[in-house]
């Protein structure tokens, strides 16, 4: 589904020296995969996600989406692609603070050419278990609930891929696990997910882990038996978890 070949990205700083955020990234991601991208801060993870999500144009390389060269498409067609096929989840949720959960979830529908959108936002909220919070504003929701609203927003247009940049970075362990459980469920529904994290434990829930260093992919390995977040939640239920998730060395 996704084929990146020799992707490079250089930020030409005004006055500052140019930053080579990506250096020749090549990777194939099949439909239905659940991929984690790990790496230290500044290694180029977010830049790669911007390229994958058509938010930024790489300086070099090719990007085929279902065999189509999407980098040559007009900006408007790219916007349509984002709207239809890609759901974004961000570390800081990025909900409109003064809009209700329902209005937030509805946002992508406003930019779609769908004729009938009634009820879609509410059913997306339902799918993340927050139908009863539709009228709440973000500030009236916990961090985990806010991120679930954001996921509902990412799913509302029924995209086939989900790009998440540190979606658990602002959450406590339990909420993080709930979010991962939700991702695993979405994955089981057949969606392709690319999840950026610097948390090794979180990454162990995915099917494949890409490690980035200095703008390059330095390792690419499958996870033989991904962890099951639902089971973890089950076993930790009733207990208070104080220790953070284990960091990889």
């Amino acid at each position: 589904m996704i084929q990146l070949q020799g992707i490079g990205k250089t930020y030409e700083g005004k006055g500052a020296p140019a930053v080579r955020a990506l250096r020749g990234v090549s990777v194939h991601i099949e439909r239905g995969e659940f991929v984690a991208i790990v790496g230290s801060s500044g290694s180029g993870k977010s830049t790669l996600m911007n390229v994958l999500g058509l938010l930024d144009k790489p300086s070099e390389g090719t990007y085929l989406l279902d065999g189509q060269n999407v980098l040559d498409l007009s900006l408007d067609v790219q916007a349509r692609l984002r709207n239809r096929r890609i759901g974004f989840v961000f570390q800081s949720f990025r909900l409109l603070p003064r809009a209700s959960a329902l209005d937030n979830v509805e946002l992508p529908l406003l930019y779609s050419d769908r004729a009938a959108i009634d009820g879609m936002a509410l059913s997306a909220l339902e799918s993340v278990g927050l139908a009863d919070r539709a009228r709440h504003r973000p500030a009236q929701l916990s961090g985990g609930q806010q991120q679930r609203v954001a996921i509902a927003r990412a799913l509302v247009n029924r995209p086939d891929m989900l790009l998440a940049d540190e979606p658990t970075g602002n959450l406590d362990t339990r909420s993080a696990r709930e979010i991962i459980e939700l991702f695993q469920q979405i994955h089981r529904d057949g969606r392709t997910i690319v999840l950026i994290t610097h948390d090794q434990h979180i990454a162990q829930h995915c099917g494949r882990i890409l490690r980035m260093e200095d703008g390059r992919i330095v390792s690419d390995r499958g996870v033989e038996r991904p962890l099951d977040a639902a089971a973890e939640l089950e076993s930790s239920a009733g207990r208070t978890e104080l220790q953070p998730a284990t960091e990889a060395p």
Binding site: L55, R82, L107, Y111, N157
Partner: peptide, 16 residues
């Protein structure tokens, strides 16, 4: 600005 960035990510065209 952040809201505008978000809307673009969600599929808004420049003219939207």
């Amino acid at each position: 600005t952040a809201e505008i960035g978000l809307r673009r990510a969600l599929g808004a065209r420049a003219r939207d």
